[in-house]
C-alpha cells in the first residue's frame, strides 16, 4: 500500500495550494493572504521560525510542498493570536499553522524529535487517562523528558513555582497518586474514538 503521503502527492500533483485547501484546517484561507507580513512581525517567537506564516503561505502557493510540510516553523506557534488579531485579511493564521502541523504529522513527514510535537503527545496521553489533565504529572513528565538526572535538576529549579501553585490551590500534590478524573471516562473515550473514526473516514475519502 502506498503511504498516505504518496497518495496525496499523486492526487494533487503540483497543486499544493489545493491540497492545503482540501486537507488542512482553515486551509482555504491561504489564498487570501496579500503578503503584508504583519503576522511575521507580530509573532513573539518570530526569531525561532525558519519560515514565518506569510512566507509559508507564499511557499504553499509556489508549490513548495516538501519544504513546508517538513518545516518545524508551524510547530513554533504558541497560539498567542497576535497574528490573527492584526491580520488585515482576517486569516485565522494560528489555526492554519496548527492545521499544517497536524496535516504534516498525519502524512508522517513532520520533523522528528520536535519538542512541541512530543509535548502534544504527552499532553494527549495524560488527558486521555482520566479525561482531565493531571498537571503535576504533565509537568514532571516534561522535566524528566531527557532522563532522570536532568529531570531532578529541572524539578528542583521549579520547586518554588510548584509550591506556590499548591498554596494557591492550583495544583494538588495528591495528583501524583492518580488525581481527579471525569465522571464517565469510558463515555469520553468512546466519544473520542468515534470522532477519530469520523476523522479517519474523512481523510480516507479525501486521501483515497
Amino acid at each position: 500500500m502506498m503511504s498516505i503521503n504518496t497518495v496525496m502527492v499523486e492526487k494533487y500533483r503540483n497543486n499544493f495550494l489545493r491540497e492545503v485547501e482540501a486537507n488542512v484546517e482553515e486551509g482555504e484561507w491561504v489564498k487570501m493572504c496579500m503578503q503584508c507580513g504583519v503576522c511575521a512581525g507580530s509573532c513573539p517567537l518570530g526569531d525561532a521560525w525558519e519560515h514565518p506564516p506569510q512566507e509559508i503561505f507564499m511557499m504553499i502557493r509556489a508549490g513548495k510542498r516538501e519544504d513546508v510540510l517538513t518545516s518545524d516553523s508551524m510547530w513554533m506557534c504558541t497560539s498567542c493570536y497576535n497574528c490573527i488579531v492584526r491580520c488585515p485579511r482576517e486569516l485565522p493564521i494560528t489555526h492554519i499553522m496548527h492545521g499544517l502541523a497536524h496535516y504534516a504529522r498525519r502524512l508522517g513527514i513532520q520533523p522528528k524529535n520536535n519538542p512541541t510535537q512530543w509535548f502534544c503527545d504527552v499532553f494527549w496521553n495524560n488527558m486521555m487517562k482520566k479525561g482531565r489533565v493531571n498537571e503535576l504529572k504533565l509537568g514532571l513528565s516534561l522535566y524528566f523528558k531527557n532522563g532522570f538526572l536532568s529531570g531532578i535538576k529541572e524539578s528542583l529549579k521549579n520547586a518554588g513555582l510548584g509550591l506556590n501553585m499548591v498554596k494557591a490551590r492550583r495544583m494538588s500534590p495528591m495528583d501524583f497518586f492518580g488525581g481527579h478524573g471525569v465522571k464517565d471516562i469510558s463515555g469520553l473515550q468512546k466519544m473520542i474514538k468515534k470522532a477519530q473514526e469520523l476523522e479517519a473516514d474523512r481523510i480516507d475519502r479525501h486521501g483515497g
Binding site: L17, K31, M32, M34, Q35, M58, R61, A62, R89
Partner: peptide, 14 residues
Amino acid sequence: FYRSGQKKGVVFTK
C-alpha cells in the same frame, strides 16, 4: 475586486 479574485482562487505572486 482583488479580494474577490483571491476568493475565487486566483494566485498572486510578487
